[in-house]
Design a protein around this nucleic acid. Sequence first.
DNA 1: ACGACGATAACACAGGTGTGCTAAAAAGAG
DNA 2: CTCTTTTTAGCACACCTGTGTTATCGTCGT
Lengths: 202, 202
Amino acid sequence: MPKIVDHEARRAEIAEALWRVVRRDGIGGASVRTVAAEAGWSPGAVRYYFPDQEGLLNFAMDLVSRRVRERIGAIEAIEATGTLTEIALRYLEEVIPLDSEREAEFETWLSFIAQALTETGAGGLRDHLGPVQDGLLELCQSLITALSDGNTLRAGLDLQLEAERLHALVDGLALHVAVQPGRTTPARVHQILIAHLETLQP
Amino acid sequence: MPKIVDHEARRAEIAEALWRVVRRDGIGGASVRTVAAEAGWSPGAVRYYFPDQEGLLNFAMDLVSRRVRERIGAIEAIEATGTLTEIALRYLEEVIPLDSEREAEFETWLSFIAQALTETGAGGLRDHLGPVQDGLLELCQSLITALSDGNTLRAGLDLQLEAERLHALVDGLALHVAVQPGRTTPARVHQILIAHLETLQP
DNA sequence: ACGACGATAACACAGGTGTGCTAAAAAGAG
DNA sequence: CTCTTTTTAGCACACCTGTGTTATCGTCGT
């Protein structure tokens, strides 16, 4: 029997190289050859795992999607000390790109979004947009629900609307951090999120 | 004397063709040839007005930037009837992509952002990011200030922080409209903005 | 040792790209 | 009409792209 490699792991490794290329040169710079060079293999080797580049791009975007949702799922196990608001804050900051790793992830994701929006109808990159969006929205929903159940929420609020408002705020902050990190600093994001959560309190 | 054409107008016309190509095929699809075909000229003609494609891209992005800021400036003349909150709402909805034209503009802008973020340091597309961002932030600032001066604002609010929070909310909503127009409808955006402005009232 | 087969590399081809250069066309002044 | 300058089209070159095909390498069970 010949050498056996874990295909899925190898594909993930190549996809991560794709991310780095996309972040460095934009999505247009992600050719089979450049990705192969970034990953440290020959173009032929890359094409063994991905017959065409469309499949490569799709896999890479899907992998981002899966990683993001995994991370959102993983933070269920976050430290549950302090007030409910403090806990909610900790959840949210897990999602906003405040360190360089998540910053890279968000910028890459932004490139994917821009590319996916050019495709009309479903069936390509566009299919990966919804799940990530949904994951973050569901997180916001469960946070709002938790605040509500803990009587940490003003009465008479529309919970669904508040979740969507929080969701938009979080994505907007993430975008601002990416575009103008000098102005929208992590500390500033912290302040704005605190202020927002406080306005939800009784 | 030879035929005289308005260079600036012709460049703008070509830049608008560039936008259409970017929106349809992504920024990678915007070559000198494709843009020329979209604009209805020969590649040579396009190259007469833009010596290289980097200049073309820069001009096109700068033109978006100028147009957006012009539009923000132009809505100073908006109808000033109703409560201050209603007026503020009308301003904000002038900025969020709720019709197909501004939707196209926003998607194109998103592609530019993604591409600009790949460039390290200043000097390229990245220079056009700040001004647009600033324009929208300043609009939010003046709206918050107007609400404050009109005693339509809760006491004790940090005006600068509220402007930034509103700014992030607006950009997040715009992003959500672009990514999931099915879920984030214009009517929903309207509701969320109203809810947000109401939380700022005394 | 050997052979079989998964994994990798290499090459070939047609097509698209940016851009430098050159020839043609158009249009008003004299 | 003719000349002059601006504007447009066209061609050529080297380079990069995706992908199909073919050959080589490495590793293991026998």
